[in-house]
């Protein structure tokens, strides 16, 4: 068994080998591998005893279950109207400048992927993005450049980065 297959097996063990656990298993793979490789999807099919086409068909329905190669950090820029009005394009431009990639592309180092996405639910703090699961809001070109800088520096030091959202009880 390859490393990926073992991961899939472990996830299937954890969640259970039933169709209803397909999404959690796929989410678990994406969390670790950043996207779903063919190998991983075939292993999921084996574990749940469903066809590989069903795994792919289901995964491809959900925008967070990427089946194309993605970097370690997936940047999703909200393109819905509130963020659009508040300068989403300037944020994309800033990211493109720093990472030297266009929307839809992944850096050569496989560290970042830049995507657009639909409403993230931060319209009052637009423009907003997600980097993997962490939201960043009220962005300006300067702010996003600083955030990316942190990621690049911290990635070298392997530290976890926490977003800027505070929550209370």
């Amino acid at each position: 068994m390859t490393e990926v297959q073992e991961k899939v097996r472990d996830l299937s063990e954890k969640y259970g080998r039933r169709r209803e656990n397909l999404l959690p298993i796929l989410q678990g793979i994406v969390e670790k591998e950043h996207y779903l490789t063919s190998e991983a999807m075939i292993q999921v099919a084996k574990e749940l005893d469903i066809s590989a086409a069903e795994v792919y068909g289901t995964a491809s329905f959900y925008s967070f279950l990427d089946t194309e190669q993605r970097g370690q950090y997936v940047i999703r820029v909200c393109k819905t109207i509130s963020c659009d009005m508040k300068g989403k394009n300037s944020i994309i431009k800033a990211i493109e400048d720093v990472l030297k990639i266009k929307v839809g592309e992944t850096t050569q180092s496989k560290m970042f992927t830049l995507l657009e996405t639909n409403c993230l639910g931060w319209c009052h703090k637009a423009p907003a993005i997600l980097i993997n699961d962490e939201p960043y809001t009220n962005l300006t070109p300067a702010k996003i450049k600083a955030i990316l800088g942190d990621y690049i520096r911290n990635a070298e030091g392997k530290q976890k980065i926490i977003g800027d959202i505070q929550y209370e009880r």
Partner: peptide, 15 residues
């Protein structure tokens, strides 16, 4: 919660 322009459910779940 996915309707463009709504984010109240996130706020309720947070608070």
């Amino acid at each position: 919660e996915g309707e463009p322009g709504t984010f109240k459910d996130r706020e309720i779940l947070t608070k």
